[in-house]
Design a protein around this nucleic acid. Structure first.
Lengths: 120, 120
DNA sequence: ATTTGTGGTTACCATTTGGTTACTAGTTTT
DNA sequence: AAAACTAGTAACCAAATGGTAACCACAAAT
């Protein structure tokens, strides 16, 4: 067995920049996407994988684990066969909603759309 | 000369998720930090490197180039010796301020501080 | 005459991230 | 009797990201 010992290494932040602290936790391209997809509902692993098709199940699983470790999401496993697992935001996870909202807002702007269109 | 041909590869986004679009552009841990450090002022390369000590100048330079390519920052070079270059947010870059503000806000929260403290 | 200061770039290498395929368990459907 | 379904995990490999050290131009200061 390979002990999946995964200790997060946060960004070195001597000047105590709050944005750096935030990025240490939810930085990386997938986490905000995943958190936003979970939103206010309970959602199954497979469903998440469907609505974020460009992430592999391996990476999705490891991102979810990390978010769970941070206490931002809760994982509920039902003892059924085939297995069912649901993810939802914890209270701490919900505190990220304003960020996710601003990200969604900006992502919907003409500015964002133009950048993607012109460089694709 | 090695042609630094760097075409961004955006996240595949068939369902047109706005957060995914946003993350395609400002995803990655450094960009929000850099944008936030630039803020409303003009700032020199060296100064940026000082206040984000954990980024190497190589990575800082490449991130700045990418942000410039997206039209989020403007680079002004003064023909002096030693050289002086200043970076500032463009109008498009300033449209990100609400996101940066929320990130800073959350990064300052007890929740964020606790996560870092407990897992470090 | 040498050192200092600036904003990078380059080469080389190490680490991290990510993808693919195959596999598991036990119940239900074909 | 075989196949499908789910939520992963493991092994293996490819690609992206990041660090370090050396280097450049040229003027000003020592």
């Amino acid at each position: 067995m390979v002990t999946t010992n995964f200790e997060p290494k946060f960004i070195n932040n001597p000047l105590n920049c709050p944005v750096t602290r935030a990025m240490s936790i939810i930085g990386g391209k997938w986490k905000p996407i995943i958190l936003n997809c979970i939103g206010e509902k309970k959602i199954r692993f497979g469903k998440l994988n469907q609505i974020i098709p460009s992430i592999s199940n391996k990476v999705l699983a490891s991102e979810l684990k990390e978010l769970e470790l941070y206490g931002l999401i809760k994982r509920t496993e039902y003892t059924e066969m085939p297995p069912r697992v649901e993810y939802e935001l914890t209270k701490a996870g919900k505190s990220l909603i304003p960020i996710l909202h601003e990200l969604a807002n900006w992502g919907d702007s003409t500015i964002a759309k133009k950048i993607i269109k012109e460089l694709n």
